[in-house]
C-alpha cells in the first residue's frame, strides 16, 4: 500500500501549458470587468486561483514550490481585506456613511472606470479571494506530497486497488 510511481505526464503537462494562460486571462477578465459584465470578485478570484492547480498537475510538487511563495500569499490576503476596509472608509472621510459610494459620477456608463468605489472594492475582494483560495489549494497539495525523500516529492501516492489494476494491465 501507498507505493509511489513516476507519472508519465507529457500529455497533462502540455495541456496545462496551453490552458494556464487561458485560465489566468479569464479570471482576471472577470475580476476587472466585474461592474459591466456577469461575474465579480469572488468568481474571478476562484477562476484565477485554479492556475495553481494546473501548475501542480503539470509540474508536480517541486514545480509549485519553486513558482509560488506560500508565506507571501498568506500575507497578501490581509492586504486585500485592509484595502476593502479603506475603500469603504472613503465615505467617512467625505462625511457620509460607511460603504457610501462617493466616486460614483466618474465616467460614462459602460466604461471600466465608471462606478467609483464599486470597481475598487471589486478588485480588492478579487485579490483577497485569489490569494486566499490559492493558499488553501497549496495547503491541500502539501497533503499529497510525501516529503520524506526528495526524489519522490513530485509524485502521487496510490492506493492498493489501483496498484492491483495496474498489475492486471501489465
Amino acid at each position: 500500500m501507498n507505493k509511489k510511481w513516476k507519472r508519465d505526464d507529457l500529455i497533462v503537462r502540455s495541456l496545462a501549458d496551453s490552458y494556464l494562460p487561458i485560465a489566468l486571462v479569464l479570471g482576471f477578465y472577470v475580476i476587472l470587468h466585474g461592474n459591466i459584465s456577469p461575474g465579480g470578485g469572488f468568481q474571478g478570484g476562484v477562476l484565477a486561483a485554479s492556475g495553481v492547480l494546473l501548475l501542480y498537475l503539470g509540474y508536480g510538487f517541486k514545480g509549485v514550490a519553486t513558482a509560488v511563495n506560500m508565506e507571501r500569499m498568506h500575507k497578501l490576503e490581509a492586504v486585500g481585506a485592509i484595502a476593502y476596509v479603506l475603500f469603504a472608509m472613503l465615505g467617512i472621510f467625505c462625511g457620509y456613511n460607511f460603504c457610501r459610494n462617493v466616486l460614483w459620477d466618474s465616467g460614462e456608463i459602460g466604461d471600466v472606470w465608471s462606478s467609483g468605489t464599486i470597481a475598487l472594492m471589486n478588485y480588492s475582494v478579487g485579490f483577497k479571494v485569489l490569494t486566499g483560495v490559492g493558499f488553501l489549494l497549496l495547503l491541500v497539495i502539501a497533503l499529497l506530497a510525501t516529503g520524506e525523500d526528495e526524489e519522490h516529492s513530485g509524485t502521487i501516492t496510490t492506493t492498493e486497488h489501483e496498484e492491483l489494476e495496474r498489475g492486471k494491465g501489465k
Binding site: 476562484v46 477562476l47 485554479s50 492547480l53 489549494l137 491541500v140 497533503l143 501516492t157 492506493t159 486497488h161
Partner: peptide, 21 residues
C-alpha cells in the same frame, strides 16, 4: 468554479489520504 472544481479536488485528496475504500 466552486462546485465543480474545488469540491472535487478536496474530495479526491481526502479519498487519497484515507485509503480510497
Amino acid at each position: 468554479a466552486v462546485g465543480v472544481v474545488l469540491t472535487t479536488i478536496i474530495f479526491v485528496v481526502a479519498l487519497r489520504k484515507t485509503g480510497g475504500k
